[in-house]
């Protein structure tokens, strides 16, 4: 192997050897271990890169590792792989490290990264695409509660047409097992008329159900990205 290419490979591996933030709770399994990174033509996954581009409308190939996204990311302190490292890992074909980790569920969709990227990458859309891949293939991640909240939120739309905040909070507590979460807040909100026990259903609920059903059908037939 020519020396220059070897040096570049070593540099790539070195880049991944960054310690996770110290206050991050110990989730050692998914933290990048350089010994586990195998760089090869097989490891680079052009199909995944293409799929991400199809889903997100932006290519991770354009990331040049300037780090502005991670610098501005309000959630970087909670992440094992902040946005720029997520992109680099994907470029190197280490998609399992990214997909099985928690970071993709920690993105708050605040669009700071997308706003600041100097090379037109849309990391926020990539994060959506990565979550979509995980929803489609694996269903459940280690961030069950983030997934639960999203699922209940969408379920409310399908069932009522609008958000039923009381149901959202109550079912979240029941299904996550955190029965007493925000219990003190409930009466304060109710006294101010901010929490309704019941939610009227939209008159056009049948049409809303159709939207959900049609998208499911389109997905089954493979007619959507």
């Amino acid at each position: 192997m020519p020396r220059r290419r070897l040096a570049r490979l070593l540099l790539m591996v070195r880049f991944c050897f960054i310690h996770p933030p110290r206050h991050y709770p110990a989730q050692r399994d998914h933290i990048v271990n350089p010994a586990k990174i195998v760089l090869s033509r097989q490891a680079l996954n052009p199909a995944l890169i293409a799929r991400l581009k199809q889903l997100a409308g932006t290519s991770i190939r354009n990331c040049m590792q300037c780090g502005k996204c991670s610098a501005g990311c309000p959630m970087a302190g909670f992440m094992e792989h902040p946005p720029s490292r997520t992109l680099r890992l994907l470029q190197l074909g280490q998609n399992i490290q990214v997909l099985a980790g928690r970071s993709i569920w920690h993105c708050a969709s605040c669009e700071t990264c997308t706003t600041r990227c100097p090379n037109g990458v849309d990391p926020a859309a990539i994060m959506d695409a990565l979550r979509k891949l995980w929803w489609d293939e694996q269903g459940r991640s280690e961030e069950k509660e983030v997934q639960l909240a999203s699922r209940l939120f969408l379920d409310n739309i399908r069932r009522y047409g609008r958000q039923h905040e009381m149901r959202l909070g109550a079912l979240f507590n029941l299904q996550s097992g955190k029965l007493f979460k925000d219990l003190a807040l409930g009466p304060k909100l109710m006294a101010r008329g901010k929490l309704k026990l019941t939610q009227e259903k939209n008159r056009n609920l049948a049409e809303i159900e159709q939207i959900f059903a049609r998208i499911e059908q389109m997905r089954q037939k493979g007619k959507t990205p």
Binding site: D128, R131, W135, N156, G161, R162, I211
Partner: peptide, 25 residues
């Protein structure tokens, strides 16, 4: 009349097409 939830962040975090469809409606 009869507006529906826009899906906010959870909808596009789960499915971008669904999010676009809710707002389109």
């Amino acid at each position: 009349p009869d507006w529906l939830c826009c899906g906010a962040t959870p909808a596009h975090n789960v499915d971008r097409l669904l999010s676009l469809a809710l707002s389109a409606k």
